[in-house]
Structure formats: structure tokens, C-alpha cells
Write a protein that binds this DNA or RNA. Structure first.
Lengths: 255, 255
DNA sequence: TTCGTCCCTTTGTCCGACAAAGTTAATGAC
DNA sequence: GTCATTAACTTTGTCGGACAAAGGGACGAA
């Protein structure tokens, strides 16, 4: 028979990890608020009683997690993790897991429909203004595939924002980051692509303004189906997301 | 007038960042495959021609991003980023952004319904076996709130897995990580909670087996509404997610 | 073969150092 | 007194070297 568990496993995390955990705890607990300065590396050396190299390794961990960052003068301060930074990690993971466009399409269909429903229900005047502004800019660049694709991506971010649901905003982001880069290829390849895209956006804004949920859902579906039809002219939906999208995401992250 | 752009901005990233980027590129490009060993720190010192401290900072960045990890003997190797590790970062972000339970509830409603629809359509026998096994274990611990809550969380992970859609699996995870810890409180507080939860799971498995999408969606809705009713007996849906959940997530991450 | 021992490698941590860039304070001009 | 300039100090990024602890491998003994 086995002995009764007298001892709990002891915590033997390396020092840099303990440093990172300690700072993380303070931030998550709210004792350090977003924007608050963390000390200099030398301060932390004194407080934790470990070497500066060790502190620096801990800092890298937190920095990568988006919990702290350095301002223009490279001083450390806590910050609210930006979704886009975190979700680019997830997009990368999806690429490495070789997910297919079919998976992206299906998930996006769900997430974008949910976004528009939320937006129809709760969009503010400010949200509508942002969307209208985006539409104007889209119409101006309807001939430029790259610029239009960027506008399209922003449009859907704005719709999600208008849903006032940050969980949804965050959940749709990894898929969107992989999904929308293809838009450029499609708009380039399909003659009617650009105008149809802008028309769909117009109908979506209209639906939000009229609080017409059915129309919103309908046009979101059509919009995505347009994407799908365009994509299938180029490649199979069952192809896995390619590494080229990763490069796109990398460039975006650095921006 | 301004001069024509003769020069592109030069890349002045710190060395540790360049090291991390270089290794990341190789992994994402597929030249280093998951499981492949990265060299020792000393190897990397030689290859990159920088100091070991610099290499180590770069390694911390990649490690935190889930792209590389150390095996039992602490040697470095590339790996497929685990969703759960990455999404715990997102959960943390949601806590810091002080999202409300209403947002979690609404998003989860969408995501779990999509999961069950996928599962009904595409679940394999193996998926069903896993779900059945989970149900058995749930029934065995129906009186133990903590154990039951854990089973519930696993159940929904398995449903998402059965949908065969990894994008969906990933998208639902951050919300689920914050959502399901409350299950324990609810099962404890509401007398009928445990049995109702297990009954819902039974109906869901049944719906998947019979490929009955409507029943699946119906019972998912009921299941979530049960959660909501239980939760509202304890607190307002508009309360922001508390820091206590963060601690829960931290403990889980360390496991 | 299996076990234990010795040696080498690797990691985690420490110390001290320095150049570059930023910050602060003091200085001088108006 | 205000503003610009310079000098002194601080902080970061990087480097070199060092050492203890733990792991892995080779070697020989039972």
C-alpha cells in the first residue's frame, strides 16, 4: 500500500519564473494598475535579491505575455494586454496546426453572425460613425485590392466592436487574422469582387442602423459566401492555411 | 517638397528579439518541425555570434509564446503550441479588461451552440466514447461540486473536439476558462444543479449519437440557461469577472 | 546484464564591465 | 526670469567570464 501523502510537491520553479509570477500576481490582483511604472531593472534586482540577468529573463516573459511593456524611454510599466498582440500568437498556432480554410470559414460564419447580431442590438452612434467612415474609405479604394482588403478587415473589427462584447471581439480575432488576408487575392482574382464587397458592407451598416437583425445576418452570410465562392476559384477549402499568411501576421505584429 | 524615399527604415530591433524572430521563422516556415531539437544555448551562441545572456532572453520569449519548450532534461526543442497555454493568456487579458459575465454568457452561447452543431455533424465513434466516459465519471462524482465542475469543463472541451473544427476549439477556450470555474459555485449553491447538469450532458451525447442537431442546440441552450439562472442567484450578470478566476487559471496553467 | 562511479555537458545564476541612449541638473545666454 | 546648451548621471542592451547543480554517457565491477 502507498503511504498517506505527507508532503506536497515543493515549488522548484527557476528564479526568473518566480520573478515573473510575482510581478504578474501584483498586476492581476490590481495592486499594480495598467500604466503604473514597474521599477528599473536595478530596483527589481534590489527588491528580489537576484541578479540583473535573472530579472531580465523574467521581464522578457512578462513582456511577451503583454502584461508589461516599455515606453518610449524604455522604462517598464504595466499595461492592459492588447488583444491583437495576443491573438497573433493564436493565429500562428493555427497555422502550425495546419487548420484548413473550411474550418476558418465555418468558425468565422458563426463568429461574424454573432458579431452582427450584437452590433444590431447595441451599436452606438459612434460605432455607426466609425463604420460609415470605413465605408467611405473603402469606396475610395475599391480598385486597389490590398487597400480594400485592409478596409474589409477593419470593417469587421468595427462590427465586432459595435457588439460591445469583448469576449466575442477576442474570439473572432485569430480566425479573422488568417481569414481576411485572403481577401486581397480574391478581390484581385474576381472582377466583381470589390464592388460586391463594398455593397455588402453598405447593406450591413444599413441593417445595423435600422436595427434589422435578419438583414444583418442575411448580408453577413452572403458576404462570407461571396468570399467562399471567390476562394474556391483559387484553391480548395480543404487546403491548410499556408505559411504565407504567417508572414503577413508577423509583419502586422511588428507594426 | 519632401525627398523621394531613398532609404527604407532599418531594422533596429535588439539582438535578443532578432534571435527569437530568427528561430520563430524557421519553425513557422517548417524548416524546424515540432519535436525537432534546437541546439544547446552554447550552439546558439556560436551560430548567432552573440552572448549567452542574449540567447537566453530570446529563448524566454519563444518559450512564453509556446513555440519551443524544454523536455525533461531541459533541452530545447520546437513544439506545437498548446491551445490551453496560449488561451490562458487571453483569459487573463479578459480579466484585466474587466469583462462581464453577460459578455461571457452571450459569447459562450454562440460558441457552444456552434460546437454542438459541428459535433452532431462530424463526431466520430472515438469522440462519442470519450464523451460517454466523461459522462460515467460525472455521474460518479455528482455530489462533489469541484470534481463535477471539472468534468463539466472537460465535457465541453470534448464536444468542441468532436466538432473537428480546431478554430472553434480555440475560439471558445478563453471564454470557457473563465466561464466554467463558476460552475462549482453554482452546483454547490443550487440543490438540483448537479443532477440537471449531468442530465443535460446525457441528452447532448444522445443528440450527437442520433445526429439530431435540433436536440443538440436545444439542450445546449438549456444547459447554459441553467448556468445563468444558477449564477443569477449568486451575483449579477453584469458583474465583471473577478480576480479569483484568474487565480484558478494560474493554478491550472502550472499543472 | 545491471549497477555504481567518474567525467563532461548543460542549465540557471551570479559578478563585473561598457557603450549607447535617455534623463536630470547645472550652466550660460537673452 | 525664461530658454537653450552642456555636463553628469542613470538605465538599458550586450558582453565576458565564472561556478554550482543536475543530467547524460562511458567505463569498469559484480
Amino acid at each position: 500500500m502507498s503511504l498517506a501523502p505527507l508532503f506536497r510537491p515543493i515549488d522548484v520553479a527557476p528564479a526568473y519564473q518566480k520573478v515573473a509570477d510575482a510581478i504578474e500576481r501584483e498586476i492581476v490582483n490590481g495592486r499594480i494598475k495598467p500604466g503604473d511604472p514597474i521599477g528599473t531593472e536595478h530596483d527589481l534586482v534590489r527588491q528580489f535579491g537576484v541578479n540583473r540577468s535573472t530579472i531580465r529573463e523574467g521581464i522578457r516573459v512578462l513582456e511577451e505575455g503583454g502584461l508589461i511593456s516599455r515606453d518610449s524611454s524604455r522604462r517598464l510599466h504595466a499595461c492592459l494586454p492588447r488583444y491583437s498582440k495576443l491573438t497573433s500568437r493564436l493565429s500562428r498556432a493555427l497555422v502550425l496546426h495546419e487548420v484548413t480554410f473550411r474550418e476558418l470559414y465555418e468558425a468565422s460564419m458563426t463568429l461574424e453572425v454573432a458579431s452582427i447580431e450584437g452590433a444590431v442590438e447595441r451599436a452606438t452612434e459612434e460605432n455607426l460613425a466609425e463604420l460609415a467612415d470605413n465605408l467611405l474609405r473603402s469606396e475610395a479604394v475599391v480598385g486597389d485590392a490590398a487597400a480594400l482588403a485592409e478596409c474589409d478587415a477593419e470593417f469587421h473589427v468595427l462590427v465586432a466592436k459595435a457588439s460591445q462584447n469583448r469576449v466575442l471581439q477576442l474570439a473572432r480575432e485569430p480566425a479573422a487574422q488568417l481569414f481576411y488576408p485572403t481577401t486581397e487575392m480574391i478581390v484581385t482574382g474576381v472582377a466583381e469582387g470589390g464592388p460586391r464587397l463594398v455593397a455588402a458592407h453598405r447593406h450591413l451598416i444599413d441593417a445595423i442602423r435600422r436595427r434589422d437583425s435578419e438583414a444583418g445576418v442575411l448580408w453577413t452570410r452572403r458576404h462570407l459566401q461571396d468570399w467562399r465562392r471567390g476562394f474556391e476559384k483559387i484553391a480548395s477549402l480543404d487546403r491548410s492555411v499556408e505559411h504565407m499568411y504567417m508572414e503577413h501576421a508577423q509583419a502586422a505584429r511588428r507594426r
